[in-house]
Design a protein around this nucleic acid. Structure first.
Lengths: 226, 226
DNA sequence: TCTTAATGTTACAGAAATATTACAAATTAA
DNA sequence: TTAATTTGTAATATTTCTGTAACATTAAGA
């Protein structure tokens, strides 16, 4: 993670918190407490992404946003808007004016981080780690490809998500319920046994002759990647 | 242990007791005496887990729970419900409305602590200590693996739970009844002698040549790990 | 030493969990 | 639209685990 992030936000405490955490993740961070000044500094700083507060003392977030979009050098700068709770309608306006994503305060840093990465993944794939790697297994989230031992492996969508899930926490054992919750879209109801079948399909795809089995069955607990 | 726990409970004495003990275990604790206020403070506090009383002066626990589940930032917040004795039916409702576990008052702090850790272990494994270690024996609860002297040992589910049980209180002698209550799922009826067989299986698995016996038989009392 | 109660050991049948297969319905691509 | 792929489930096969009973051994007191 080596991208630059600029923050325009008038609450110093939020800046402090976010900045600290983002720097811990390896981003370079600069910030400003108001819109006009922020615009100037931002253009000097040339960030890969902007976190922009909706309510600023001088300009509104939308104004800042429009100004940026007018500037040829920054019209593609990804922007994540920070909105206070209950500004539901505003959210839509925000998106219309060319914001890439928004998040409502109060937010957890984890959620913010996830959104930042998701946005960067689209705009600037090289900045974010997109490859999940475990031993000789590689999963490319951008191109949606999977390789074992340099050789590409064809996976169906569900098997891809399943493997992606295991790769985010290798070695850890997950119960069928946990797998179901995370890998399947919410509020679908599938039999817990169905997972066995998908595990089998995944195993069949990623196993190579003479190479060790990658998915461990832990009786009465679930499965894990090893 | 470095997680944050929020308590919503109208009996100040309970809060005091629980808070004191949780802080002794290294948790950061905040609390509120009623539902509406609690909801607000909770969202500022961003806990890793919520202890929620079922009967509150303003909102019912269920209402609080539903409110939380609606909020994108907190819909996955683990919740343990505190219910008064005899609210059996309510328990079921509680679980349906998305509670992760419940405990009936009066409860011992040990039991509460155990449940908190169990719930956190699933949701936020990094917060809770997951390795049980005793001399050259190591049990990894996340990966579900057991090692003696660095070498991995294969255990069946019951033997795993049995060893996990002994490891939480090494040296202490447990009667067969105590073992049965804790290691076996509630409301199953197994002969007390069955334990002897499982002890044997466990012994066979974890004993290594030239290494001392790890499970001590205390005639007429039970077994212990030494 | 004998007796007895407690624990150790073994083998095995049934239970429980997982693996595998096949197939029809649903989804997506052509 | 048709063809191809993907999905979920049910049925069946296989593996592994469990509890019990029967018999063996041990410890300790008389």
């Amino acid at each position: 993670m080596k991208g630059k992030i600029f923050i325009i936000e008038d609450e110093a405490s939020i800046i402090q918190l976010v900045q600290l955490n983002l720097e811990k993740e390896g981003f370079i961070v600069a910030s400003s407490l108001n819109g006009n000044e922020g615009l100037k500094e931002l253009k000097k700083f040339e960030p890969n992404l902007l976190l922009l507060d909706w309510m600023l003392p001088d300009l509104s977030g939308i104004d800042v946003c429009k100004n940026i979009r007018k500037d040829n050098n920054f019209k593609n700068l990804p922007i994540i808007m920070l909105t206070a709770k209950g500004e539901e309608e505003d959210k839509i306006k925000g998106l219309e004016s060319g914001v890439d994503d928004y998040i409502t305060k109060p937010f957890s840093f984890n959620e913010l981080s996830a959104r930042i990465k998701a946005v960067l993944r689209r705009s600037d794939p090289n900045i974010v780690a997109n490859d999940l790697i475990f031993e000789d297994l590689k999963l490319d989230r951008i191109e949606k490809r999977v390789f074992r031992d340099e050789k590409e492996i064809q996976l169906g969508p569900t098997e891809f998500r399943l493997l992606e899930f295991f790769l985010t926490n290798p070695k850890r054992v997950y119960s069928r319920d946990q797998i179901l919750e995370t890998v399947w879209p919410n509020n679908v109801n599938v039999e817990s046994r169905t997972i066995d079948v998908h595990i089998r399909r995944l195993r069949q795809s990623i196993n190579i002759k003479d190479k060790k089995e990658l998915i461990r069955t832990v009786r009465s607990s679930g499965y894990s990647l090893v």
